[in-house]
């Protein structure tokens, strides 16, 4: 279907354009403004050019946060994607179990992000938490406030707990969209459960799984509230991810210039990833139509 050519359609987009421009463009201008100035106080500012950018790009702690971020996102995806698909495959196809599964899965997604942190704080603390006390009673010292490894394990557990349901819901929706005759044909062809998965379910889920993968990558890349509540970025800087570092810089130390330069670099990284995301999505759409 060809779309109608009509530039008057702009009037329909105008409200969205205005509201997003207000929320996005004006603040971004402020950030750009800060990133090239040194600010001592009201009315006292000096133009410093690309200095903050140079400093930021050379900031060792930023590099660490960036690698930490990639490692975290990568590990999380490695667990969440297969687990989510497995859950979707095990979910019932009809009956009351469908509603029950959907509601249960969606539950963690609707909990405010800092409450997620709180839940896991309560759950994993060695003194009052079920998880923490069980692990400790098994003779393994577990304390996410002291050991970086424990902090990472806790964060990963929390992230997997929080977001695997999203992958599962997407995968489930993809599975339900496969027409029944494919399964019938596979049965007649004598396909094993694995062959059915490998050659029917997985290819048919490709679209939703791509979306799930990219969404999960982006969102885990921007993670802030949950680790902030649970570990506050510590112990040390072991769980200081990009967003946490940025907020520390901007709000904690009020280093506006470096924070702004950091913001712009951060945003550009996300923008680049977002562009890849968009391209891949377009291709997925095209592949299905062909």
């Amino acid at each position: 279907m060809e779309k109608w050519d009509n530039n008057k359609a702009w009037f329909l987009v105008l409200p969205v354009f205005a509201i997003v421009a207000f929320s996005a463009v004006i603040p971004l201008m402020t950030v750009v403004n800060y990133s090239v100035q040194d600010i001592f106080g009201p009315g006292q500012r000096v133009f410093v050019g690309a200095e903050w950018f140079k400093a930021t790009l050379a900031d060792r702690r930023l590099h660490e946060a960036l690698w930490r971020q990639f490692l975290f996102s990568g590990l999380v995806l490695l667990i969440e994607m297969p687990l989510g698909v497995m859950i979707a495959l095990a979910m019932p196809k009809r009956g009351w179990g469908v509603s029950f599964s959907l509601v249960t899965l969606a539950l963690p997604l609707l909990i405010p992000w800092n409450v997620i942190g709180t839940i896991w704080l309560i759950f994993t603390r060695p003194d009052i938490g079920l998880f923490g006390s069980i692990i400790n009673s098994m003779g393994i010292a577990f304390d996410h406030t002291a050991s970086p490894l424990d902090a990472w394990i806790t964060l990963m557990l929390m992230e997997v707990w929080h977001w695997t349901p999203l992958v599962a819901l997407l995968a489930y929706a993809g599975l339900r969209a496969i027409p029944e005759v494919y399964y019938q044909a596979a049965k007649i062809d004598g396909a094993s459960a694995w062959a059915t998965f490998r050659y029917i379910q997985l290819p048919k889920m490709r679209g939703v799984l791509t979306i799930a993968l990219l969404l999960r990558f982006m969102d885990s890349f921007l993670i802030y509230a949950e680790p902030f509540v649970l570990t506050g970025g510590g112990p040390g800087n072991s769980t200081t991810f990009l967003s946490i570092y940025l907020v520390k810089l901007a709000v904690g130390q009020f280093d506006l210039g470096p924070a702004a330069a950091f913001s712009i670099i951060y945003f550009l990284i996300v923008l680049a990833l977002c562009f890849v995301f968009y391209q891949v999505l377009q291709n997925v759409g095209r592949g299905e139509k062909a």
Binding site: P179, V181, Y182, Q184, A185, I188, D189, G190, A191, S192, A195, Y199, I200, P203, K204
Partner: peptide, 25 residues
């Protein structure tokens, strides 16, 4: 063997692999 109203194919495979699929299984 059954042929359905809408063609059922294993999209990711070649024609050869599609035809070989029931035998391989």
């Amino acid at each position: 063997a059954q042929v359905f109203q809408f063609p059922v194919l294993y999209d990711t495979m070649t024609v050869f692999d599609n035809l070989a699929f029931p035998l391989r299984n």
